[in-house]
Amino acid sequence: MGRRLTGYWFTAPAVALMVLILIAPVIVAGFLSLTDYSLGNESANWVGFKNYDKIINRSTYQKMFSASIIYVLVVVPASVALGLGAALLINSLKFAQDFYKTIFFLPVMAALLAMAIVWEFALHHSIGIVNEFFESGCGTIAETIFSFGWIPFVDGAETWYGRHCAAGEFPLWLRDKGYALGTICFIGIWQAFGFNMVLYLAGLTGIPRELLQAAEMDGAKSGWERFRLVIWPMLGPTTVFVVTITSIRSFQVFDTVEALTQGGPSKSTYVMMYAIYEKAIKQNLMGIGAAITIVFLAFVLIITFIQRYLVERRVHYS
């Protein structure tokens, strides 16, 4: 009888929820981005592309884009490279593979908000363990080594470590606009690279041993040659996926910014998700928030389409 109808019954709830929860909001956001809507106001004015105009031209939003883009451009390559490096190293070990794997995966499991707050402690300018560690190295052999004065033509007193040792103080990290975004990036990398490592480890097990042996017989004697000629191309699909997912996640960075810097100092960490939160939820400027949402979705779609394109071409780039 109604096996055909059953199909509709079984998919109906999912379809309804997809429309209501995922598709309708995109349309609603697109619509609201053209108004000056705010919650509590029953009427909203049609403002055309004014919100987008603001996003493009106002310096606040230019800072927002640069913070978000810098964050992505730092966190993605760094966490992908570290993930790959860790995977290659761990994969080539004779023992303790699981030990390192477990440790590097811990940050992926822990609530980022909690760990962000702990990092804030570690980076605290007076009681933080990081600056204390740097200070304890001053005046010892560590200063000699890491101020790099031993490299010809490098003035040890002018390098980062040398200068801060001489001044007797180290950066305020999250409170210094020159360092805040970098510090937020660091926490992002710390959190993300274990995930990438695990994906790369899975990718590495997929490379047939015979292929590596064949490459070796054909003259790829050094580890680097084998990596360049076999491993890296074979990891192509993994890399495409890892880069995509890390990019999308990095665009969504919020927890660390909200808890530690609130977009400051002087908007240096004003990333897009935080901007949406601040403008729309805190200041009730729904139009602007919706416009940022649409731009945000556009970024995500672009990244995904690039991925699909690369996957479809089955790129094993060399």
Partner: peptide, 24 residues
């Protein structure tokens, strides 16, 4: 068509549409 819809919706991160969801 339904499966195509599923594939399409995979593209939308829920965090990204938080604002319209919040308004609704």
């Amino acid at each position: 068509f339904v499966f195509g819809m599923v594939l399409f919706c995979l593209l939308i991160p829920v965090h990204a549409i938080a604002l319209p969801l919040y308004i609704m």
